[in-house]
Design a protein around this nucleic acid. Structure first.
Lengths: 72, 72
DNA sequence: TAAAAAATTCACTTAAAGTCTAATAGACTA
DNA sequence: TAGTCTATTAGACTTTAAGTGAATTTTTTA
């Protein structure tokens, strides 16, 4: 699994765990919802600034975000 | 400190801990050395693909890379 | 203190990130 | 079976990251 796919899957997992919609995350993070969909599906190479925006919105630190075996 | 600065500082710390030059990392990762310099100095908004390339070259996982209080 | 090695800076092109609108589709609910 | 909610996709578009070259500056060391 490539890194874009892993990051996208992790973002979706965290979002669903918090019972948030893409639209809500889009609104709160000020990142386009169609873009969020593509990131979650592993089709976009997200920058660190936008990744931080999303993790902030999702209420998880980058440290915790990457703290899974997928990123070992 | 903004996220670009934190990531750059962390990359530099890891690189220096391994006693590598930017030129060596550039060669091994196939990323331009001037680009690496600018990333380390917080002037570039690096993407997840390039960040993974650099961490791979530096011999550290993304999990360990982000496992510092800076990213809490 | 000069030379060599390492890092920085800047200007530039091009490739892709990221936005916007709108249409589509699936899932659920009344 | 229409109506709402959610997610996906496409195309056209703007902005920005990626990537490079060359010159300059800083640091290290002979």
């Amino acid at each position: 699994m490539d890194i874009k796919t892993k990051v996208g899957a992790r973002l979706r997992d965290v979002r669903l765990a918090k019972k948030l919609t893409q639209e809500k995350v889009s609104f709160d993070s000020d990142i386009d919802k169609s873009y969020i969909s593509e990131v979650e599906n592993g089709r976009r190479n997200i920058s660190i600034v936008n990744l931080e925006k999303l993790t902030l919105t999702l209420g998880i630190s980058l440290k915790d975000f990457f703290n899974t075996t997928d990123f070992s």
